[in-house]
Amino acid sequence: MAVAVNGPILSLVGLTRRFGEIAAVDDIDLEIEDGEFFTIVGPSGSGKSTLVRILAGLERVDSGAVLLRGRAITDVPANKRPTAMVFQSLALFNHKTVGENIEFAPKMRGVDPRARRARALELMDLVRLPEAYYARPVTRCSGGERQRVALARALASDPEILFFDEPLSAIDYRLRKMLEVELKDLHRETGKTFIYITHSLEEAMVMSDRIGIMRAGRLVQIGPPLEIYQEPRSRFVAEFMGEVNVLATGEAGVDGAGWLVVRPEQLRPLAPGEAADVVFEGRIVNDYLLGSRKQFHARANERMLIGEIAVGAGGVPGPGEPVRLGFDLKDAVRVSE
């Protein structure tokens, strides 16, 4: 995680935006450090897009303030903010070439043609677009190439902060994985502050310094990826991570209200006579090989459990076989809501 030297680059203070009765952004306080890769993760309708549009200056606020290095920019329009956005649809200028798209911001600032061309070629090199693409219409670029054009175009405005509104959501899996890694590299190379929006926690984990989980207009948990993964503070956050077991305390024989979050790798098949704090008797439904790990689904007490073990470590009974599964309370995370 980036170290704060000059204080936060961006501060959000009591930020609120309502659409009719619904608060899309509900009293959000947040500080983003200079050079940080901050990702806001939430399901659709959680208000994450509205939040980033407010930060970019494309959406007004009902109350609260946005501060850039301590200076209020709440009412500064998007074209006067030192920020740039990569849109979900990419919003490339379809009637322009790759070069013209990238040079748009310098052109608006009155940079002379030769200097902006040099800058465009420099950025194309940075995002790994061949120089031959300079004069190509963007309509003749592939999905991945269009992503790179959008990125270079945003960088060409020399923004202090770059916003990303789910730009990778419409891309196939392999290309997305590749672009995620490239984006993380680019973040390190440029040293700029990246604020990224996604509905995929997996995507957020790969790239981010910190993650904020958004639900119904509020940030319900903020922290580094590992902390979010290991110490979810609510069922919502835990279930958002996908394959995880959430058990009511009563189900596990534990006193008090609330839930226990048990990650698959903490649920292990027990050898005969082996003990664990919480034990389930059930049957294996199926198993799936995930490279170096094997995942299994089991049915016990009318519920499904997901477990994972390293390949070659003991082993799991085959589908349809009875099994004893167990976990220790010290491995489970207890949440109250």
């Binding site: 970019a56 200056g57 494309l58 329009p77 998007a78 074209n79 006067k80 920020t83 740039a84 956005m85 849109f87 979900q88 649809s89 919003a91 490339l92 200028f93 379809n94 009637h95 322009k96 748009f104 911001a105 608006m108 600032r109 175009r153 945003a154 060409a156 405005s157």
Partner: peptide, 28 residues
């Protein structure tokens, strides 16, 4: 795609520049 106008505005264009550089060429 209306986002093209927003993108131009976000990249520092004035309302008039957005119209001249993005909307008008798209309509041409």
């Amino acid at each position: 795609d209306v986002a093209q106008e927003e993108a131009a505005f976000d990249l520092g264009a004035s309302r008039l520049q957005v119209f001249r550089e993005v909307t008008l060429p798209a309509l041409s």
